[in-house]
Design a protein around this nucleic acid. Structure first.
Lengths: 262, 262
DNA sequence: GAGTGGTCTAGACCACTGT
DNA sequence: CAGTGGTCTAGACCACTCC
């Protein structure tokens, strides 16, 4: 009944689940497996494709097929926003100690590696509409990569936008060498007199672009979670927007919604 | 440079994007395509697999390969919770008119098809911990399927749990024929004297189980978004939990986080 | 029954990895 | 260089759909 490639996939899956093949182990070569199961190599490869799409194995050209190691789950909350706001007016010494990502993940600043780069761009139609500025207005585009010190792949790719005219009175906000900025974006905005009143987040999932799959080290078949965050000041003006790309296989997001009393 | 199957995939992708192949059109048969591109059938099939994993085509055994129709995006917000709470004490006539899903999607009750079934279960360890009851306690398990009247696949699979002891004083709450219940779960809980104080939602993404892929009509390679919702009453007691499975390719979720003033 | 996609074979050659 | 996975061929046979 069951087709051959499914039987092979089932058998290998069972071996992995049972621990006969441990995380990081190399599987027998495809030609060896074909011999063992008395099937052709393409049939074995079809079985391996199934396991790969389930995230159980990793195919490395010229090296072999390996049992995938489980990766650390990265957590993200919406309480981070109020937490960051509360710290935005604290003294630098306190802000230096920890940031919103550490708040979410429960790790210390030494466990995370952080890369930032800034450049200036002109607003396209989407960004112009969000910020209610004319298309072509000057924006600051900031890209961030955050990863665990012990792993090679980042767990978030962030592109953040600010309206240049709103922040240029503090030249440090245009200088990427000031990153990581203690206290984060909310403290940066505080230095130019902006207080946030509300944050809207839109969450979707989609297949990764080839570049995203490469950078996040995603197995084929894994989706990315895409989060678009817009920060509004206390006058309901959009002052910051971020596109956040998160690996679907290792991200958990938590949202708390308080309700008003009757 | 570029390998054959990628060239074929690129060419077909371009045809679809350019509209030469419209949504719902059948592609030429695999043997015809092999002839056209002067490649073997397995190579053509490899190209089609790429397009399938991108959600661009749908393979129907015995019928052909078809350009996939874009499906309606389903929206979900967290403002639905306050909205539903505000309506929970309204008269039945008002609650009948519309529900939280209509609030999210902007549609009327006539555009949506709704299925519900109830059964009684015993709490497993996970549920016992969430509700702070002994394992084995009686729970009401309620499953819901919601779809657009014009489409065949539901856009949400919901499994919701209540502690039987908390709701059994109103026998209607154990009766699935009372669904769809005007005013939703928050009105149901109101009838037994429960007011919600907070809702926590946890969001992750993962590959679908075969059953989920089948029911949601997901193309291979598409993830599902999994949302676990826990509703707490005003004394911080968990009173309801839902597991919500959403198709990753057609779901948008919106979360608003208000911030306290400085 | 004709036409379609699904599975499978047996083997060739190429590209990548590590020694 | 040997060994590995990646691509590709040419064809066989099966399962499904629709007429």
């Amino acid at each position: 009944m069951a087709v051959a490639y499914e039987q092979i996939a089932d058998d290998l899956r069972r071996s992995i689940r049972a621990g006969e093949l441990a995380a990081g182990d190399r599987l027998a070569s495809e030609s060896k497996l074909a011999e063992q199961y008395r099937k052709s190599v393409p049939t074995v490869r079809q079985a391996l494709r199934v396991l790969q799409s389930e995230g159980l194995i990793e195919k490395l050209h010229g090296r072999g097929n390996f049992v995938r190691r489980p990766r650390t789950v990265a957590k993200r909350t919406n309480s981070r926003h109020q937490w960051e706001k509360d710290r935005a007016r604290e003294p630098r010494a306190k802000r230096l100690k920890t940031g919103a990502t550490e708040h979410d993940t429960g790790l210390g600043v030494q466990d995370l590696v952080f890369l930032a780069s800034y450049r200036e761009i002109k607003a396209d139609d989407r960004l112009a509409e969000i910020f209610c500025v004319p298309a072509g207005s000057a924006l600051v585009e900031r890209t961030y990569r955050t990863r665990y010190a012990a792993e090679s792949a980042p767990f978030t790719l962030v592109t953040s936008y600010l309206v240049r005219a709103l922040v240029e009175e503090n030249p440090d906000l245009l200088d990427e060498t000031k990153e990581p900025w203690p206290g984060g974006t909310q403290n940066q905005l505080f230095t130019v007199g902006i207080e946030l009143g509300r944050i809207d987040e839109k969450v979707t999932a989609r297949p990764p672009s080839p570049e995203e799959a490469d950078e996040l080290e995603l197995p084929p078949g894994t989706s990315v979670i895409v989060l678009q965050k817009i920060s509004y000041d206390i006058n309901d003006r959009a002052v910051e927007m971020s596109d956040v790309v998160l690996p679907g296989d290792r991200t958990e997001m938590y949202f708390t919604t308080p309700l008003e009393r009757w």
